[in-house]
Simulated assay, not measured.
Amino acid sequence: MSMIAVFFGRLFIAVIFLVSGISKLIHVSDTHAMIAAAGLPGALAVPTGLFELLAALCLIFGVATRLWSILLAVFVLLTILFFHREFTDPVQAMAAMKNLAIAGGLLCLFGYGHTRWSYDALRQRRRDEHAKYEAERRASEAELRAARAEGRAEMAGESAVIVEKRPFWRR
């Protein structure tokens, strides 16, 4: 049941960044002005929108979930510092608390990064299966080498016995 909750939590958090990224890319001039008003280069509008969009898609499909969740958590915490630092303003304080909660959810997602129904989990299962196959193959090869060595030892023992049974003048 908890894996279902993690799955839906991952989707819900991803939707926030999916909508935000699409909005930033559709309204580039507004995003440019908002970023410039915070004292940052306005040229960050498109890269920011693309970052949010790419991160959201990776979270949705579960690709590098832990990496994207930690990057987004840092991103969200930086938005508090640059855009919501007026804590005396109730609207800014509420936005900062919302972003803090999102960062907390992203850090929880970082902790549960390889969940079911994700590419990361599928890749991990394939790695585990491959490791098991390789271990079985190595064990089989070791058994085969041991059997060959045992056979060679038996043959060497029989030839030593045969040599000793010959008369001394034929040696």
Rank of each mutant, 00 (worst) to 15 (best):
G49Y: 05
S69T: 07
V28L: 13
V63I: 15
L77Q: 03
L53H: 10
L72S: 00
L53G: 05
S29P: 11
V74D: 07
L77I: 14
T48Q: 14
A33C: 07
T31W: 15
L53I: 03
S69R: 06
W68T: 10
F75Q: 04
A55H: 02
I80A: 03
G39Q: 11
I22H: 09
A43S: 13
M34R: 10
V63N: 01
L57M: 05
H32M: 12
L78I: 12
A73Q: 12
L40H: 08
K24F: 02
I35A: 13
V63D: 00
V74C: 10
V63Y: 08
F61E: 04
V76C: 10
S20Q: 07
A55R: 00
L78Y: 00
L54H: 01
F61D: 00
A55S: 10
K24Q: 06
G62Y: 05
S20K: 05
T48N: 14
I60G: 00
V19K: 00
I60E: 01
G62D: 00
S69F: 11
S20C: 06
A73W: 07
I22L: 13
S69E: 03
G42W: 15
V63M: 06
L53C: 04
F51V: 02
T79L: 09
A73D: 12
L81C: 13
T31Y: 15
P41C: 12
L81I: 12
R66C: 07
H27K: 06
G21K: 02
F75A: 09
F75E: 02
V76R: 07
W68P: 07
I35T: 04
G42P: 09
W68H: 08
I35R: 13
L53S: 09
A38I: 02
T65A: 02
S69K: 07
L81G: 11
L40S: 08
T31P: 11
S29I: 01
I35G: 14
D30G: 13
M34G: 06
L53T: 01
L71P: 06
L78T: 01
A73F: 04
S20T: 03
D30A: 14
G39L: 11
R66N: 03
V76S: 10
L77E: 02
L71W: 07
L78D: 03
L78H: 04
I70A: 14
A43N: 12
F75G: 02
L67P: 15
T65S: 07
T48S: 15
A43R: 13
L25K: 01
V63C: 04
L54Q: 03
L54C: 13
L53F: 08
S69P: 07
L54G: 09
A64K: 15
I22W: 11
L67R: 14
S69V: 00
D30C: 09
W68V: 04
